[in-house]
């Protein structure tokens, strides 16, 4: 099943500059694994070595933070949108 994934600027070097890509999977975990196959190197930016999501990355399914759902096991439906959003904004000192 295909879902749309929105990519933040710091990761677009890995997605050939695309701000939106398509990936397959029925859960967030499967979609991340599929993204890694399509764009090698992207998973380690999003996930820790043990597979959990990095503290400074937020994943939203449509408008909901997956931490308030089933985390990586959150299920996805056809047409859902997964957004990878940095937890912070840069540029201050």
């Amino acid at each position: 099943m295909a879902v749309k994934v929105r990519i933040p600027t710091p990761l677009r070097k890995l997605t050939e500059g695309k701000d939106e890509v398509t990936a397959e999977g029925t859960t967030v975990r499967e979609v991340i694994d599929d993204l890694e196959k399509r764009y090698p190197g992207i998973k380690e930016r999003i996930c820790e070595e043990d597979g959990s999501i990095r503290k400074f990355v937020n994943l939203y399914v449509n408008d909901e933070d997956i931490r308030f759902k089933l985390n990586l096991d959150t299920e996805l439906k056809e047409g859902d949108e997964l957004s990878i959003i940095p937890a912070i904004a840069g540029g201050m000192c």
């Binding site: 999003i46 990355v57 201050m92």
Partner: peptide, 13 residues
């Protein structure tokens, strides 16, 4: 920050 996607608010890579 050591990488483009980081969690250090206010800092720039």
């Amino acid at each position: 920050p050591d990488s483009p996607l980081h969690g250090l608010e206010g800092l720039k890579h």
